[in-house]
């Protein structure tokens, strides 16, 4: 009988202890949530005060226009240098809760690159008016492209933490200015096919091309942007515009594979 009493008492105490532990855990979590909310509120908007605002972004653009994946005919990239420029824009955002929101913006950008590559048996044709030279080129190619225009991104916004925000969504671009030109040299063209007439194209007398007029004026793709709050109202950000549309028009045959613009912007943003 005495034993039973002990057991009951032990059970009661342990239940009380459990309850007490739960209580303290809950208060700790509440405290943390409050801390987090306070932290979120400190670093940016929350649903409590409407969750709307603007971000003004200024950055520098680097990247390139490239076929994806690189065709086997491209043997070696000898040189690459971004020929970007600045990017300036404004995003408006709206949070629906503490973490999730939506943003849309308008940005002016300058993009570009300079690249040199060795190619082997690279199917190409150059169209000049009604004349066409086509065949397989082995040698060196140097390409330079520049574009400037406006981009409208529409992105879902997710706050990973108080200071980190990730944005992901589609973008649409309009190029006001665009050019794409270059030259081939130090190699030869087999006219028509690999068994055709060999035409030597030397470094002394390269063949120039200019496909600027064959570029689209509109493009689209996916944008990913990561913001980090350095201090109140000030972010640093990195964003990547991954083009999903060929930079050339559909009826453009000269470059036999699609070329996609893939450009990153690094910069600072002011938000309020």
């Amino acid at each position: 009988m005495k034993r039973l009493k002990y057991i009951l008492m032990t059970l009661c105490f342990s239940a009380a202890g459990l309850l007490q532990a739960q209580e303290s855990m809950k208060s700790l979590m509440d405290e943390r949530r409050e801390n987090r909310e306070a932290n979120y509120a400190k670093w940016g908007p929350t649903s409590e005060h409407d969750g709307m605002g603007f971000i003004v972004r200024a950055g520098y653009v680097i990247g390139g226009t490239s076929p994806l994946p690189l065709p086997a005919e491209i043997r070696k990239i000898n040189e690459f240098s971004p020929k970007g420029g600045f990017s300036l824009g404004i995003d408006g955002y709206k949070y629906f809760n503490m973490r999730w929101g939506l943003s849309a913006g308008l940005r002016f950008f300058m993009q570009g690159m300079h690249t040199g590559a060795n190619v082997k048996n690279y199917g190409m044709s150059i169209v000049m008016g009604e004349d066409i030279v086509s065949g397989n080129f082995t040698g060196t190619d140097i390409t330079e492209t520049r574009m400037s225009g406006f981009t409208i991104p529409v992105m879902a916004t997710y706050r990973v933490g108080a200071r980190w925000t990730f944005n992901l969504g589609p973008y649409f671009s309009y190029w006001i200015y665009r050019d794409f030109d270059g030259h081939v040299f130090d190699g030869y063209l087999r006219e028509g096919s690999p068994v055709g007439q060999k035409i030597t194209i030397s470094a002394d007398n390269p063949a120039f091309y200019d496909f600027s007029d064959d570029m689209r004026s509109c493009s689209w793709g996916m944008e990913f942007c990561a913001d980090f709050r350095v201090r109140e109202h000030l972010n640093v950000f990195g964003l990547l515009d991954w083009g999903l549309s060929d930079v050339f028009k559909d009826d453009f045959q000269t470059v036999t594979f699609p070329m996609y613009p893939i450009y990153a912007t690094l910069g600072v943003a002011y938000y309020y």
């Binding site: 994946p69 070696k76 082997k120």
Partner: peptide, 8 residues
């Protein structure tokens, strides 16, 4: 991108 160069 550069390192995705395929076999010759």
């Amino acid at each position: 991108l550069v390192s995705c160069i395929q076999d010759e």
